[in-house]
Design a protein around this nucleic acid. Sequence first.
DNA 1: CAGTATCCCAAGCGATACTG
DNA 2: CAGTATCGCTTGGGATACTG
Lengths: 147, 147
Amino acid sequence: MLDGDLCSIARTVELIGDRWSMLLLREAFYGVSRFEQFRENVHISRAVLTDRLDHLVEHGLLERVAYQPSGQRARHEYQLSAAGTDLIPAFAALMKWGDEHRNHGIPPITLTHTGCGSPVTSQLLCERGHVVSADAVEPEPGPGITG
Amino acid sequence: MLDGDLCSIARTVELIGDRWSMLLLREAFYGVSRFEQFRENVHISRAVLTDRLDHLVEHGLLERVAYQPSGQRARHEYQLSAAGTDLIPAFAALMKWGDEHRNHGIPPITLTHTGCGSPVTSQLLCERGHVVSADAVEPEPGPGITG
DNA sequence: CAGTATCCCAAGCGATACTG
DNA sequence: CAGTATCGCTTGGGATACTG
């Protein structure tokens, strides 16, 4: 259908499809921003954490923000960038799948709309506003096809 | 917020968050079902492909279906199971992100609703039917939290 | 075509120790 | 606290050859 390397899924997986990146971004989404917190929550070694954080900053998914603990030298915080925030719908979709298929339908975490306080889920929506079920979706070559 | 290992994202990533699984599932979504086709499209070696296919079948994401090429012995096809199909919204979300952030907004592949023929995208939707932007979503402890 | 079997290299990673 | 440096194992995976 498409040279696999051009696929947007492939390019996204290439970037964040390793064992750690998604989990770190998830933590950032949950509000974690400090080195030690990432380390404890994700159970990742220091060296690898440094490496991944750098990688995610370098590719624009996290932003390094300076902060100064009182009386100590400056450190960094890591926050979701705009591009990182744009991944939240994907997290929501993955989370929904995991809730259903790996957690017996009982979500450990739910998402709520800060505007109205009601639960938020990821859905497929067609341009006419229909909610679309997964088996009613067909992939087609798009404008970015080059082959 | 949550012991990381219980997180539905973690459990999903654990299952399909390696270098190959997502790409194979993507191919299955695109309609590929044969060993050699997977191999050519994903550029994966035989041994690894066998391993991943087994893994995905074992965990219920793909179904092995027998087929018999004329005059030859029986082979297998690999098709998305119901659980695998349920991952399509996640693919759609990842694809959308990659379209925007890695392909300059020009999608190589688009998704269409087989019902009405119009384009389909992944969206965050709240229970009241609002389309929710990614920065208006807040994670909260859900019923499955055990802490 | 759809695998299985070997061999070997390279990347990934944990453990540990050290530093400002 | 937030890293850096080093070591050595273990896993992943490419190349190649073989099989029904």
